[in-house]
Design a protein around this nucleic acid. Structure first.
Lengths: 233, 233
DNA sequence: CCTGCCCCCGCTATTTCTGGGGAGTGGAAA
DNA sequence: TTTCCACTCCCCAGAAATAGCGGGGGCAGG
């Protein structure tokens, strides 16, 4: 375990990660181990041991949108056993059927990972076995998996230069206030009144924040501020 | 270590966490160990071993805004040694001086923690010693600290009922598309074109999503959809 | 001292969004 | 089978957002 974590820390290229993850898979004796960087923009990075055609299908069919694992992990902090997710709904069941057909396995355990700027990723182990065996496995290796997931995400953040936190241009306190209140559903008039400033001034802040965030419009600016963790609601 | 983690997992009240954190501090033989829930809304929760008057001063003077540890950890995924932060700037140096005067210690190591809905927290150890000793300490205990931080945050999320994510009413696929594109900065016209629907139809989706999310307006709806993890950008 | 940033205020014009209506299709669940 | 819901389209008037211009005072760092 210690040796493998060190190997992970020593990785200097994305291809190293692939080797490391295969080593981990063999060590834990599971069918699959996958690291999956989740981004709505369509660009996704992942490495792991799923079959090539499953990965391709996943991307092509935009399964990101319906994958209950993604949905579920987004709402949780702790690792999630796939059994505890909501697989009702046609699309989800269809997806599950296809996943199993592609050898993903009937059991799974995913660790949600969150980084700066709203980065989100999953570290997943999946396997084919009965519920009891799986429960024992996850109980035994939970801590190891959390640590591995953590280090893996750290490496991925390091090695993917594009993903590095953009020189996060911080907002001024007043801008933060304005964006926060807007995100809370206040109209501009209400925000201005709450902050005790004129609506004109408020507009300057919103414009300024929009510019700093590189956003096209207010909605975009609020979305970016939120996902970069600049504001909290 | 294992016994303490189990004690942490067994905690059922916020007061238990205080005991646990003191046990950890004694075990690691450091001056302080602190868990600090950071929320932009002004309400903060924390537990740890800092002197009472320091905590009060921190809250009163709104140090959250100038604390380089907060700023720095916000931008990083991996744990941060305080030495590597940016302590230039008058306010920061002043803050540091006051912190040391209140017995915080000259060395520190903070683990950033991120949960659903933009939750952000820090788990910090601080101590008074020379650089070399501290480097050895952090190197030795990094993994333990990450795990402890993780479990601590999990407990805090569990025990603070107000912080729990509300039961998310799911959006229809089309609504998800609409909200996602809006969050990505597209104008209504662009979204409609991208989805190959009329702008009128788009509006129905936005309205419908807004209703489901209990939002006052589009900005609010996008913010809620984002923070509830219904859309990913 | 000057430069840059933050904070506050004003105007106009144009484009875009919002909040009400109503109406018809098809597929899925009950 | 019937009932629901997602999906698509349409109109209109008023509200809100955007883009462009201008002004001033304060506080910090180089």
């Amino acid at each position: 375990m210690d040796r493998m974590l060190r190997a992970l820390e020593g990785a200097s290229e994305l291809s190293d990660l692939q080797q490391v993850i295969e080593t981990f898979r063999d060590h834990f004796r599971v069918d699959h181990m996958v690291y999956h960087w989740v981004s709505g923009g369509g660009d996704q990075y992942g490495c792991g041991t799923y079959a090539q055609d499953w990965v391709q299908l996943y991307l092509e069919r935009d399964f990101l949108r319906i994958d209950p694992v993604i949905q579920g992990c987004y709402q949780h902090f702790h690792p999630v056993d796939w059994k505890r997710l909501d697989w009702s709904g046609r699309a989800a069941r269809e997806f599950q059927r296809e996943a199993i057909a592609h050898g993903v396995g009937n059991q799974g355990y995913s660790v949600p990972l969150r980084g700066p700027n709203g980065q989100f990723a999953l570290f997943t182990v999946s396997h084919n076995c009965d519920d009891e065996t799986w429960a024992r496995f996850t109980e035994t290796h939970r801590r190891d998996l959390i640590l591995i997931a953590h280090y893996f995400n750290q490496k991925a953040l390091e090695l993917e230069p594009d993903r590095k936190p953009e020189p996060a241009q911080p907002l001024s306190p007043r801008e933060v206030d304005a964006m926060t209140l807007l995100a809370m559903g206040y109209s501009r008039a209400q925000v201005a009144q709450t902050l005790s400033i004129s609506e004109h001034t408020l507009r300057v802040y919103v414009e300024s924040a929009r510019f700093k965030l590189g956003a096209m419009n207010t909605v975009h600016a609020v979305a970016r501020a939120l996902s970069r963790g600049l504001i909290v609601i």
